[in-house]
Design a protein around this nucleic acid. Sequence first.
DNA 1: AGCACGCCGACT
DNA 2: GTCGGCGTGCTC
Length: 811
Amino acid sequence: MNYVEVAVDAPIGPNKTLTYSTSEKLRVVTGQMVWVPLGQRLVQGIVFSLVDEPKLRSIRSVVSVIDPAPLISMRGLCLARWMSRHYQCSLFESISVMLPPGFRSNIDAYLEPLVENTPTSSLTKTAQAILQYIRVQGSVKEKTIKKTWGYVADNSVSRLISEGFVRRNWTIPHTRSSPSYRVSIIPKFPDKGVKAVAYLSSIGAFKQAALLKDLLLRPRDATLEEARRKYSTSVIDGLLGKDLLIQKWERVVSTSKSAVILPDQPLELTSEQQSVVDHIRTKLGSYDKRPRTILIHGITGSGKTEVYLRALDDCIRLGLRAIFLVPEIALTPQTMERINMRFPNQVALIHSGMSMKNQLDQWWGIRRGEFNVVVGPRSALFSPMPKLGLVIIDEEHEWTYKEQERQPRYHVREVAVELARMVNICVVMGSATPDIVTYFEALKGKHKLFNLPYRVGVRSNTNSTVPGILSLPKVDIADMRQELMAGNRSIFSRALSTGLKKCISKGEQAILFLNRRGSASVVQCRDCGMVLRCKRCAVTLTYHKLRGLLCHQCNLGYKSVTVCPECESPRIKYLGQGTQKVEEEIKSLLPWVSVSRWDSDSVVESGGHAAIMESFARGESQILVGTQVVSKGLHLPNVSLVGVILADIGLHLPDFRAGERTFQLLCQVSGRAGRGDIPGNVIIQTYNPKNYAVLAGANQDYRAIFETEIEYRRQQGNPPFSGLVHLTYSHFNEDVCKEEAQNFNKELRKLIEGDANRRISVIGPAPAHVYRIRGKYRWHIILRGDDIVNLIERMKIPRGWSIDVDPVSVL
DNA sequence: AGCACGCCGACT
DNA sequence: GTCGGCGTGCTC
Ligand SMILES: [Zn+2]
Ligand SMILES: [Zn+2]
């Protein structure tokens, strides 16, 4: 008997595995996925290790192996261990991000009737009805019972099982193997086909004769799958056994356009770029020289992408492979295109927008080592790339790199840095506005820091270095308080409206940026001021052109209203998205100008982000109003004015990263102006013109924001000076929710008081920023200090609490 | 997470 | 007395 340690799909504590026994013939190996019994059900599990002696007496055995191929490499298993402890999730949860797309599933239990003649009089009416139903049907999904009888069935079903009327059973679904191969069956001797058919008929193999005849008459090869639909496996096997058929295995070529890619030429490097590339080269594949993590702080247009491409090239030349992470695929088509052009037919792309089949093909292709580079969002870090040597994280500061919704709530930067500590890979992070934490770490020597302070000549082969200061756009701050005092109630300051007029009259283009948070559409009553809210969540509903009234938290759709539910007034006002309002204002200011919008509605209408960007780049409209920052890499030489409608949105949120976030946004927006031959102008409208984040953003002064922000963080003990853990409790009952939060808070404080060195402080409990989601009330507690995980491990967390370690925001 | 078990008020 | 609603604890 062999024993294995399995990470099962159940929320048992972090880093816990359960022991199962296996027989020799199952041939269970590490990294495989298996079905194992757990209590009264069957769950998926990943084999973590093989052990000789079990620690327990009561051990059950592995039911079956789901895929003979080990799905998780040693690297993955080690990383999962670390993630499980660091993010306080189950081992299986941390494994779940590494599985082939769509692999995680649960199995349906069926109820089967047992002995017929037992008297049923001891049963309740519901139980009798359910039993009757199961006996008639023969075998019924347990889910079906629960659906038709509701949760009243719960007791009855367990009663039926315990008293031996029915039993649970499972049918294990067929193994999903690599989908990239198509097996066709073709007659081996087509010219002697007629003879063969006659022979088969003569020996009584009529089905086999029919199949062979079918195949001979077909114009094209039949796939095994097609044949299986009409004939049983034994018929097909019979013909194969008689050597009348041959199987042909074909690689399925991905149907995505395999356009001819014109390889592009590497650009000449500046000395600054060259030194970064040289440094990375020394780290690639090296074991000893730490740190193997690198931060490139390079202003917009300083040529970070070219550095990445050179690093990729060096990596591939060494026979190693790379993962290139981008914040959002849809917003960075140019980056993808450049990588593709430099490394034709070597790049895999994987993201959730692709079809499941496509994703699976890419996953298995990556695993077989068919690609040298994987490009993707945060989840791409976990793609099964063999011989990994390099991970690049572009726009390192972006929040999309942190998973916030479900466990594992990981930050891909943290995981990549940990990976570089575990194995000999090199991590290159780059940003014009590095995360305060990353930059601080780099200054402390945790990462090797490089600065690229100059813009390189955009798209020019001379590649001349011009000091960044000279080509930086002129930035003006418009004080909206003064505008109000001067009687200007328009959303445009005088500076911005004259700027727009001037820009347009010269035939140039302008971009107006609006923070998405302030741009949501609302539905309001003109008489009583009522705003429509979701009945399950404490948020206002938004109105989408395509999907109508919608709750942003729970995705619930609503019918549009014509009468106010509060005062029955019919005067209902549909305030469009903020971008629409801005568009209207432009129309009244400059009626003849063509304006295009870039927001959630217009993305749907005009066919995607890329379509909007390209249309504007071609000059089809003169002003672009958007909630998106135009992606990097898109050349917009004609844009001479960029306006930020209101910089303050989000600035006063009760979140310690609010200032940093505002700065990043302003920097990114201003970075769009003045990249062509026309000197650019940026106008930032604000009610807080003296705010440090607004000022630093306006001046694109990273040093200023870093120094101010790091001092705040030091004073308040926020990251990077201590860790944070965000605990949220949610419950349908408001009082229960509050009570539990207060109880747990007491427990936490008691435990901390008892500690010798009380290095952890408890903040809260307090109602969460969004007080109710999907009908559940929410209270939260923030823990601040060092080694909080250690504290959490020492106490049992009651169910209903969700844990976010190193949260990106504590709203 | 699911599932069982056990306790308690409501109703035959 | 049973029924079923809900809190609690365990799963190799
Ligand atoms: Zn009203
Ligand atoms: Zn909602």
